[in-house]
Design a protein around this nucleic acid. Sequence first.
DNA 1: TTGATGGATGTAATCGATTGCAAATCTAGC
DNA 2: GCTAGATTTGCAATCGATTACATCCATCAA
Lengths: 336, 336
Amino acid sequence: MSNIYEVAKRAGVSTATVSRVLSRPNIVAPGTRRRVLQAVERLGYAPNSAAKNLRTLRSGKLLVTVPDISNPFFSLILQGIEEAAHRAGYAVLLGDTQHNEKREERYALMLNRKEADGLIFLGHRLPKEAATLVRAAAPRCAPVVNGCEFSPRLGVPSVHIDNARAAYEALDHLFGLGHRRIAAITGPLVSPLSRDRLRGATARAKAAGATHDLIVRHGDFSIESGGAAAEQLLSLKNPPTAVFCFNDEMAMGVIETARSRGLRVPRDLSVVGFDDIRFARYMDPPLTTIAQPMREIGEGTVRLLLEILRGNAIAPVSVTLPHTLVIRASTSPVNG
Amino acid sequence: MSNIYEVAKRAGVSTATVSRVLSRPNIVAPGTRRRVLQAVERLGYAPNSAAKNLRTLRSGKLLVTVPDISNPFFSLILQGIEEAAHRAGYAVLLGDTQHNEKREERYALMLNRKEADGLIFLGHRLPKEAATLVRAAAPRCAPVVNGCEFSPRLGVPSVHIDNARAAYEALDHLFGLGHRRIAAITGPLVSPLSRDRLRGATARAKAAGATHDLIVRHGDFSIESGGAAAEQLLSLKNPPTAVFCFNDEMAMGVIETARSRGLRVPRDLSVVGFDDIRFARYMDPPLTTIAQPMREIGEGTVRLLLEILRGNAIAPVSVTLPHTLVIRASTSPVNG
DNA sequence: TTGATGGATGTAATCGATTGCAAATCTAGC
DNA sequence: GCTAGATTTGCAATCGATTACATCCATCAA
């Protein structure tokens, strides 16, 4: 492929002029500009990005690490990120970490090598290398942003919903329907997100004086773990009349298990999910769930990161986006 | 951040030696190696990738364009790609094209700028710039590979299933159950993938002498388009007893619509999907569908691309992976 | 006529690595 | 002790752009 020298020669100008035509055309005389553009056209020239990156010390790329792309929740956030990044002229470097710490760390190393200008991570762990950057940048912000999770002590800007409040509202809905014996199927409690939701749910149960009636089981956000938890719950001598799942997929598992045991949802068991993935409304019955603004979360993380890259952001901001309780047909009054 | 010169100075060696310690440690004397590694450690040095890329004329990145990441079918393929690329030491540059030709073209330009060493595209359009590369490389292969779609005249290697045969088998299953009046809801026919499936379905109908009974409607792979098509089909004076959808999401739409009209699946209407996305088995009823090996398709495209990058591949290969008809509960004998 | 002004263009340093080749040093055999 | 050969290391060119600064030239006011 051709380089800037060949273009310069063909157009009878210096490489400086070629470069200027391509980056700030209006400071070049019209005639010269035309000749250069013609040469560019003829040779099919496109500036080599490695050379450009080296000279400008920028890569034009954002590194995004996702715990699991095949999860529709994350893939929607990713779509929001990609869209916003693309609009801003950045490309997305994707890392699927598969919830694996090693891989998270390995991807974070790309920042040191300047393979990306910034990092957006959707998991709950701040990779060591990124933490180093954060410490080095303090009190300003390192180009590292989190999505979904939020932990003030990390010192990393983040975009997320108010998980505690959302869980509170989910349980409020169930208590409002007359349920008293309610189960919560959480995600792994290592993540602040799950802890926040559990806190919110517990708070609402306490407010109802039903603390002892809140049965907590732990899942891993997979359909199967939801099914397994339901299996246990429904075998209790005093089984719950409603289940609040920390994501929609576990809710699917619960409904599946309930059905296989001959229970009808919501008549015999009310189920609430979390996220409102695309399929939630098409489940049978359509799932009552907490809707999160996935795309907006993704776009929000990009916005924060760009602010930092432009040198505008001072303190680690935390952006809380609104959620909604979407009531569909998987919940009904108790003994309904 | 520190560069190779500072490391060299601190270790009392030349930059050449530092570089060698990091790339081929065993050609450096053990003592020297240790000193260099210590300096690297102290300074937290990591080689600047832009400089490396510039010098080696490689980027270590694969560009992957996907029509829609939020589609679970594509996101699983993408996961396979990411995994295989990561294993081979490549990073993934992600482009969500949203089925938009402009965006496909824009992403393809990254190849010219050497932002990636190769392109894997999952749509059906070969971007102009990529086509230029392909032509220039002939009769050898340009580093451009397709996933899912396959069109021999593009001259691009591809990994996919035998779509015609799969559709043939889907209809075979329905005919075997006694259905005669069958509908097919296709994807956009601009893509070879949809045309192949339609061809296979038509062939089987013809074999059954039921050509006139195959009703064809066109969807766009969205849940909504499946629902809309079903609305039309079920309003016919002589409605079909079975529907074959070109993906699982449209099948969801069909089932949803059927249910809302008081029909029971499969008693009143049998439904077959395509892809076997994760949710298919949890639908109500669990969906009969054609399972595609998504992860393997992704991994396959990476394998092909790496072969080309290594200079091994000669002619545009086409890899056909096996599919399976997974019979669940959304199909049953006619008038069952 | 002259000098100031400003627009257009060129010169050359620079970004940070990799690597072919040369030089220095070491090893071992005679 | 000397030399062939191997091992280790350094020198410096190179990858392909960007950009500060210098230069050139036309224009115009005094």
